[in-house]
């Protein structure tokens, strides 16, 4: 049986005036996959991700997420996805527990199971006494772990992570990826953008965007072979060198 497809795009395009931020991209992501969405700054990653999350309207092309059309059913998509943005997105003046309760509640989890879930989560993250501290007082690495856990609290079909590990140390990054694997093992599809090429190696499949278009797509091992290099860094450099846009 063919694996089920959870994200599907065909010639997806987004223009801002004359500027084509996302240019005719087509790809599929399968259920349970960890899909790395790579590209230099300004390549159009975040724009594409925002379209898929229903935060931005596409200009043309086709896209469905969890079987729902991004044009008409964007609010249905939102019930089925989790999202962790580049900007840190928990409430700093609420405690960890309050953040969990709030976002869980917004996704329609009832108070009773919410209580159990948040207790579980706090245990698993080993937060203990920190659970009742304001999020603003915690270190960045912690915030990002909590952010991710909150994004998948309602068991979405897909979770979108926009540069989730920016600015944290390698150990925390490694721990963060453990959490991604756990989520993937539970059947949650992970769609992640990153700048770290070592992280690209952790993905099941990656696509590399250059100037708004997808320049390469495939398993990391396939891409390395295709470009005749030893690591993803090499693949990325070869492709990104041709880029005209930069920040």
């Amino acid at each position: 049986m063919m694996p089920e497809i959870v994200i599907h795009t065909e010639n997806l395009t987004r223009r801002f005036g004359d500027f084509v931020a996302v240019n005719n991209i087509s790809f599929d992501v399968k259920v349970g996959e960890i899909f790395g969405f790579l590209g230099a700054n300004g390549a159009g990653k975040t724009t594409a991700m925002k379209i898929l999350c229903g935060l931005l309207s596409p200009s043309s092309g086709v896209a469905t997420v969890a079987g729902f059309d991004v044009y008409k059913e964007n609010e249905r998509i939102k019930e089925n996805i989790g999202y962790m943005s580049q900007k840190f997105s928990l409430y700093e003046n609420l405690t960890v527990r309050e953040n969990i309760t709030f976002f869980g509640g917004i996704y329609g989890i009832d108070r009773k199971s919410l209580k159990i879930k948040s207790e579980e989560l706090i245990q698993r993250l080993g937060l203990g006494p920190e659970a009742d501290k304001l999020v603003g007082s915690l270190p960045l690495g912690w915030k990002q772990k909590i952010s991710f856990s909150v994004a998948i609290l309602h068991n979405p079909k897909v979770v979108f992570l926009d540069e989730p590990t920016g600015g944290v140390d390698p150990i925390t990054r490694r721990q963060f990826w453990d959490m991604i694997y756990e989520a993937s093992a539970k059947g949650i599809t992970v769609f992640v953008t990153t700048h770290y090429m070592d992280e690209a190696e952790y993905c099941d499949r990656v696509s590399i965007m250059v100037d708004g278009a997808i320049a390469a797509i495939g398993k990391p091992s396939e891409l390395k072979q295709q470009f005749g290099v030893e690591n993803m860094d090499g693949v990325f450099l070869q492709l990104a060198r041709g880029a005209k846009r930069s920040e």
Binding site: E75, I81, Y83, S89
Partner: peptide
């Protein structure tokens, strides 16, 4: 702060 985006991506 960016939290509005987090709200906009919820149902």
């Amino acid at each position: 702060v960016g939290t509005i985006e987090q709200l906009n991506v919820t149902p």
